[in-house]
């Protein structure tokens, strides 16, 4: 089991590393670049997180997450359309593993993107510190703060989603992150199996809940929205159960 799963996982993840690496690299390099565009106009005291939020970096993050989700759906659909998966599926008991391998690979891709985003935020802070030092040299006033990166991370709702600091935040962020690969893998599978209604309705429901949860976290960061945190796992459980059921029946 382990070796077969590993082989499948390597096919899904390691085999597509070149594509997957594009996402974290874009996040790590473009974020500081966009941040620099925002920070070069800074001539006086400003806060790291406020400059970050006013820069184009959050838009880049939205684009990257959307692109990764699209890529995950596309990869699932393509596997079925070009028939390369049929050989694998003829193996006895390989279907459930294949779905799990796909899901794990997508989670790995998301992990890489997340690390890339964190690296990008860290590099943006370096850009910020550099600009602060420059201003300090010109004006003779030092605006750098102790634990400045930490203070910036704690103050912005977006950062509290990307790098959660309390247990409820960790749980709800994990939910937000895991929804993407789970629903993408399932939706791709359902579309490939021509279950357009089921796949469409399920992914729309998950997307709506996901968007609502994200909105609540961004607009009201002081409290974790419990209704969404409870319903979203139910949808995800249904998606996972349906995926495994489909895999077992192999009805495509």
């Amino acid at each position: 089991m382990n070796n077969k799963f590993l082989a499948l996982f390597c096919r899904e993840f390691s085999g597509r590393l070149r594509q997957i690496w594009l996402f974290p690299l874009a996040a790590a390099l473009f974020q500081p670049a966009l941040y620099w565009l925002a920070v070069r106009e800074m001539y006086e005291s400003a806060r790291f997180e406020e400059l970050y939020l006013s820069s184009a970096a959050p838009i880049l993050l939205a684009v990257l997450f959307a692109a990764l989700t699209g890529w995950m759906v596309w990869m699932t659909v393509q596997d079925f359309s070009n028939g390369s998966i049929c050989t694998l599926l003829t193996l006895p008991g390989g279907r459930g593993r294949l779905w799990l391998a796909k899901l794990s690979a997508f989670c790995g891709a998301l992990l890489l993107l997340w690390a890339g985003i964190l690296a990008g935020i860290g590099l943006s802070y370096l850009v910020f510190s550099g600009r602060c030092a420059e201003i300090a040299r010109i004006t003779g006033q030092d605006y750098r703060l102790n634990a400045g990166l930490w203070l910036g991370l704690t103050r912005a709702a977006l950062f509290r989603i990307l790098c959660p600091m309390t247990l409820p935040e960790i749980v709800s962020s994990l939910l937000l992150f895991l929804t993407l690969p789970l629903t993408s893998a399932w939706a791709g599978w359902a579309f490939a199996g021509r279950h357009y209604v089921r796949g469409g309705l399920g992914s729309i429901a998950a997307a709506c809940l996901w968007a609502l949860l994200l909105r609540e976290r961004l607009l009201y960061p002081e409290e974790i929205p419990l209704p969404y945190c409870l319903t979203l796992p139910m949808i995800l459980a249904a998606v996972a159960a349906d995926s495994l059921q489909t895999v077992r029946r192999a009805d495509f």
Binding site: F9, L17, I20, P24, G108, L111, L118, A119
Partner: peptide, 23 residues
């Protein structure tokens, strides 16, 4: 390729851990 996959995952985890440590 397998090693590259594991290395990538490890690198991602290391970057995240380093980021939290620096913060």
């Amino acid at each position: 390729k397998m090693i590259a996959g594991f290395l990538s995952t490890g690198a991602a985890l290391a970057v995240a851990a380093a980021f939290f440590a620096v913060a």
